[in-house]
Design a protein around this nucleic acid. Structure first.
Lengths: 413, 413
DNA sequence: GAAGCTAAATCCAATGGATGGAGTAAGTCA
DNA sequence: TGACTTACTCCATCCATTGGATTTAGCTTC
């Protein structure tokens, strides 16, 4: 299909989504204000709002002070209007959240995955935990729209599969979408973690995250999520936002694509820790509290993070080096996409936010377009630690209620 | 406005655009085939086609052989249904074309700009030439939709201005859009040259350029145009596709942003010629027929191009070096956008197509996503030399007849 | 060559969302 | 209390799409 045509019922749904979106992002608004905001007439807004009220998605939440006539009735989204489950899948654990329409996390859980060898077992375990978590929140099951999955590594979008996700030993091409759909009996959506995080940011960030932005996700590796004109970019295969192959200042590390100037190998806790040993010596590292064994990456990273906070120059130096490379990649990406906002998030960001922000901000604002035409702001995620899982849940909310968007989903078997 | 709502008449226009687009890209098609192609019912297709026939935009061009019943009536776009003027503005000359709805160039002209010091004079001169050219083609003036401009260098999209275009001495912030609108009395659209070229490619390339692709434009410098899901990406300021600040293997050249690893300074005829002198010596260069003065860039480039064609190893080496850097940038961009097609064009491509294609193809296909999930094809423009100007004209055609697109234009004063 | 069949295209009444105009509800101000 | 302002709603109308039925025009068979 070259591009799909439209029909009347779809127009209704679309406008309903537009109005809901406007109410969500503009906070409590009145019907009158919604008209210019959406480009619809006030009558249409009234009609659409009536439907939204009936559907339980918004509520009348008060009045604005009068400006000489009848007071405006303010409309707010109803958090209890809809819910979604979000799952962030990582090699060692899965984070599960239940999120309401306002993006608030009702409950969350972390399921350890001791041996992620067998996909079917992992899916069963995680889906079961998700189901129990949902039951525990006591929300109306009829209002739970579905489950979103933030998967690491490359995905085969059209097939709904992950393909050789890093650190999942023995996982080849696993049709996660179908497996989860079967296990949960709900609609399922899947995207890579960075893209999911970007959607979450867009969904929850309101006015601050309207328009276009580049989300840089720092987890085990780096990834990016791209939101353009309020729509997420998925790409031909569902892998838009691959950030690891952006070229940067070369060093000694080799990417699996054969290059020595790919960003990927130079970021992530393991790489930064190795850099500390390499360039500042074992003694400095041990003085900062690291141990340097492959198993201790998690603890070592915490130590390094704390060293950074303490002001340890060596620790700050290696982080800054990594940040500089991220900045180089970000500069290219921002210029290419012409976005005026960069958002940072992911669990690895914790403790190194300021260095990252500084370096990235300097890099992206060095181009002439940025200097002369529009500056670029660099900010932290408004969601925080759980961006991945919340983003995953947002996949469902966004897919159901965002205007003009096709969800990457498959109905339950 | 968060995002605009729709209404019924707009649906009509939209579907009309969808059907026209389908007819254009699918060649001669019947109404029955259009139905599944557009997702519309056969009745709607009939209605829409009736309107398109009345508007003179398509015609019934024959019949398909019967498959047991009534023959299908084939529909084709009518080239004489609409026309547009395209202007590619370069420091030394402007190329003007008149294009019909099928994308065929009816007539073209090259206007030399001896001293592009005064913007107003340049606009007057070029607009006059465009008007005379249009008159010469004897097309129905009522069917000329407007003028598209492919501008070099950064633009301020919302303001419709170019900002300090390179090699236009004395040009600061020039509101070209308004100036041309006033001078021509027609609707005017403007974009940077690479983006315009990408739209042209999309508009004219039919099925081969459907979906998403990255267009790499080699002119005096490098630029990129981005088409995602049949829609061009403009970006927040109208500068999407800036390719010169993508990070690549660093060298001795410094970008105006201060970096030594920006792609920009390493490509373009002047840079490649300089590299030949630098790395292979004056003798080799002169043996290849170059002279090496700043004024002779144009001739030197021709000589270098011919040397490449002859198989001169030094010439091939410097071109391959530049191509390799373009490939590095392209690799990152392709991974970021997740497109499965790269298209090359621009006047500097001439003579070095094969080296460029080779290097870029190798680079973009080195990532794991490319290897495991989908390979990436690298091709030359289907338009050829005049991509810029034809693309400029396509801005108007695409803006008027492509579904779901807002034109960057301003009505005549 | 007439009847039967098939496929393409159109006709027609119904559907349903948006809209313009008028009307109502609920405030402020003097 | 009455004039006025503003927010919102009611209602008749409009119009693109749609499902169902119909017409048009070819092929095939007897």
């Amino acid at each position: 299909m070259t591009q799909g045509g439209t029909n009347l019922p779809r127009v209704g749904d679309y406008n309903q989504a537009v109005v809901l979106d406007a109410i969500r992002t503009a906070g409590p608004v009145s019907r009158v204000e919604l008209a210019p905001l959406t480009g619809l007439t006030s009558q249409t807004v009234s009609n659409v709002v009536r439907r939204l009220l009936a559907a339980g998605l918004v509520s009348e939440s008060g009045f604005a002070p009068s400006s000489g006539g009848k007071r405006r009735t303010l409309l707010s989204p109803r958090p209890d209007g809809a819910y979604a489950v979000g799952i962030q899948l990582d090699p060692d654990a899965a984070v599960i959240v239940v999120v309401d329409l306002a993006g608030e996390v009702l409950d969350s859980r972390r399921v350890r995955l001791p041996d992620p060898g067998d996909p079917a077992a992992v899916v069963a375990r995680v889906a079961g935990a998700a189901q129990r978590l949902t039951a525990r929140t006591r929300v109306d099951p009829a209002r739970v729209l579905g489950t979103g999955i933030a998967a690491p590594g490359p995905i085969d979008g059209p097939a709904g599969a992950v393909v050789k996700p890093p650190n999942f030993a023995g996982w080849g091409r696993v049709p996660l979408l179908g497996l989860f759909a079967e296990a949960t009996g709900m609609p399922v959506a899947m995207d890579n973690d960075a893209t999911a995080a970007a959607i979450g940011e867009r969904w929850i960030g309101g006015r601050q995250r309207a328009g276009s932005f580049l989300f840089i996700y720092l987890g085990t590796g780096v990834g990016a999520g791209i939101v353009l004109n309020n729509t997420v970019l998925r790409g031909d295969s569902g892998n838009a936002g691959e950030f690891g192959h952006m070229a940067v200042e070369p060093g000694e590390l080799t990417c699996d694509c054969g290059g020595t100037n790919c960003l990927g190998p130079y970021v992530g806790p393991a790489a930064i820790i190795a850099d500390l040993y390499d360039r500042h010596g074992k003694e400095t590292a041990e003085r900062a509290g690291l141990t340097g064994t492959p198993e201790s990456v998690h603890d070592d990273w915490r130590a390094l993070r704390q060293a950074v906070r303490r002001g340890d120059p060596a620790a700050q130096d290696v982080v800054r080096h990594a940040a500089r490379r991220v900045g180089q990649a970000a500069k290219g990406a921002v210029a290419l996409l012409d976005v005026s906002r960069v958002v940072l998030g992911g669990e690895t960001l914790r403790g190194i936010e300021s260095i990252m922000c500084e370096e990235i901000e300097a890099a992206v604002n060095s181009t002439s377009v940025a200097r002369v035409i529009r500056p670029i702001t660099v900010e932290k995620s408004v969601i925080g630690e759980a961006v991945g899982a919340v983003g995953a849940a947002s996949l469902i909310l966004h897919g159901t209620y965002a205007p003009g968007w096709q969800m990457l989903t498959r109905p339950p078997a």
